[in-house]
Design a protein around this nucleic acid. Structure first.
Lengths: 217, 217
DNA sequence: TCATGTGAATAATTTCACAGCG
DNA sequence: CGCTGTGAAATTATTCACATGA
């Protein structure tokens, strides 16, 4: 069968787990563990072994019966399945505190997501150089997305300017957005949006602590 | 009925959505919209109206039949349900690039999560002052968690030091961890862990773009 | 033989549809 | 009357259990 996708719809949860599998498999590889069973991988990821087999089955057959999975091969297969066996050019919109940090955050590049343009609408920021990139006026996104081959946008503006940034990006033809601003976006259904909100994770932890304590009474 | 929790187990997805409801309701409040129906809130959050009613039903009855929800009252009720109607003292472990950014990230404090201690094991960083906090040796976490009343830890170390940071934190009695390092943690089941990985969101977007394109062929 | 891949069974979540109440 | 709150139905996701094949 090989690299083709076998199923119609793939659950969002599966995709999130595949990202975790990549993380854990990379560690295995570094530790020179070359073969792993679904049970071994499951334990390291904190999930059920058949969950892993089901997740992989959406994309193909990558294991060897009676043996397990060859770590390197499985990594390659998952990367291919996720579409991260290549590089992606990314635009960052909103060069504030967080934006600057992300521009300097080397992990993106290491993972194949290359920030090739930094945008802001503040005239005081335009022209400034951050992490080797000159900040460009957000209105010029259309032109630059074309020129630089940008396919993904990262939004790090304040909440009230996030929708405008999303509009600029989608109008420019970007096909996916990762939104760090605390605002919901309205975009065409053909554009993939991911929301990242640190504070929500703190909410979640706070809830779990409070809830656990209230249950233990 | 009021503030008591009505149900045994509350889905993780519900908690995540409640955090979104808070975000959207705050915007409504700013726009002086004082009443909202489950339909109105649902539209703004991109979910189904009965989803919202079900989510709220886990915690109580907050609406008025024939009217909807009073925005301010609902906000108060959800904040209480999530346990964010108070402040939480937080320790940050790992004063690298990302750690520094988060120390300077004012939104945490605004939301009631106050970073009261910054920790690192690098002797060159210990003693340095970042965002008004003196960096303390990670080994002194036990002592400081007590002293400062810390209940939540944020891990921003490199992947290979994340588990050690988690050990220090749990041994010190911290009850919840938000882990920004790309590593899975093993902690006692009584400790709530949330994983934050920017790169995973980019993976997700990359997959959706690739997948959509492969389906449209 | 042993671990994968998968249909069937189970569990959880979401949506529907309407009774109930302000 | 209109919108919430909620059982019941539909859908979706997870886990089990075993046939399959290296």
């Amino acid at each position: 069968m090989g690299k083709s996708i076998k199923s119609e719809h793939i659950p969002r949860a599966t995709i999130q787990r595949l990202a975790v599998y990549v993380q854990v498999l990379e560690n295995f590889l570094q530790e020179k563990q070359n073969v792993v069973s679904s049970e071994g991988l499951a334990k390291a990821c904190g999930v059920n072994p058949s969950q892993i087999r089901k997740d992989l089955a959406y994309f193909g057959e990558f294991g060897v019966r009676g043996v397990g999975y060859y770590v390197q091969d499985l990594l390659t297969a998952i990367r291919q399945s996720l579409g991260i066996d290549r590089t992606w050019n990314v635009a960052l919109v909103g060069v504030g505190n967080l934006g600057r940090s992300l521009l300097r955050y080397s992990v993106f590049r290491k993972r194949g997501f290359i920030i090739v343009g930094a945008f802001d609408c503040d005239p005081f920021k335009i022209g400034e150089v951050v992490a080797g990139l000159e900040v460009i006026c957000s209105r010029r996104l259309s032109e630059k997305v074309q020129e630089l081959g940008i396919e993904i946008g990262i939004i790090t503006t304040p909440a009230e300017r996030a929708q405008r940034a999303a509009n600029y990006l989608t109008e420019a033809g970007v096909k996916g957005i990762v939104n760090f601003a605390p605002a919901r976006l309205s975009v065409p259904s053909s554009v993939a949006v991911e929301y990242v909100d640190f504070v929500h994770h703190l909410f979640s932890v706070a809830f779990n602590i409070s809830y656990q304590q209230s249950r233990n009474r």
